[in-house]
Amino acid sequence: MSIGTLALELLLMPLVAFVVGLAMVLMLRRIGARIQRRVGPPLLQPLYDVVKLYGKQTQISHGIVHDIGIVMAVGGYIAAETLLPVPGMDGIAAKGGLITLVYVLMVPMLGLALGVGQCANPNGSIGISRALTAMLAYDIPFVIVVFGISWHYGTTDLTRIIALQQAAGPAGWGAAEMPLLAIAGLIALHASLGKQPFEIYVAPAEIATGPMVEMGGKYLGGLFVMQCFQLYTASVLYTTLFLGGGENWILFLLKIFAVVAIPMTLAYLFPRYRTEDLVRLLWKWPVLIGLVGLALVMR
């Protein structure tokens, strides 16, 4: 591959991720609205929100770490997108692989945590403490999934995982071969998105949206952008591991939107868990299902 193509891919991948992520945000707000029998926001609402927030006249900063936190949160995701293969573009997926991606995805979280820390608002700190607790909870089933996938396909290289699945056709997709792991992964994915009933770290009525408490203007705008990336990344990763990646863009988009739609449809039906209940739930059911699935994979 020439350097020019690679550079183009590295630029396009985050851009595509952002645009698709905006559409996903719209979808999830629409799903929420429909379930509550509302009309929901117009088509470009997520874009309006982001432009408006960046277009604020006064921007309030709590110091340089606050700024850097937002930079890291957005920049970390931009980097992570280049590790996620999409149809026709592999970026540097072969140089990182699954484990690297999982850990690169923690860097934006860390950036956000640092930025929130400097805001000197206890609501934000509580939010981060809860977010990290939630991470500890949902990442355990998730690493079981990661192990099962790596063991099953014999590699952590995402491009190879996709190639193996596509060669075998839908019957050879991860979800067909490892259904229990796919279920565990879906629950972990749902929790990782931080939506109801797992939105303990936002909890507007309790801790005033936690990490977002002191974020306004382009700071909040950065977090909106980050949310777009987050939805996109989680769904593409799940599609890559269990649904054979994308044969072409149409199928790919169908799959990733479906992956977000399933947990979001469930999300608006439930109230929020308490922190310890969330930990208990995620350490019990998905872990149990995942371990059984893992045993079946490794037998």
């Binding site: 707000r29 509550q36 509302r38 009309v39 926001p41 929100d49 977002m212 002191e214």
Partner: peptide, 22 residues
């Protein structure tokens, strides 16, 4: 805000802290 009149279709959302609000 809720299903009868649905402010969100106009792009109006409730927010929690003054930093976030317009």
């Amino acid at each position: 805000m809720t299903s009868r009149f649905d402010m969100e279709r106009l792009g109006i959302q409730p927010m929690v802290t003054p930093r976030q609000a317009d």
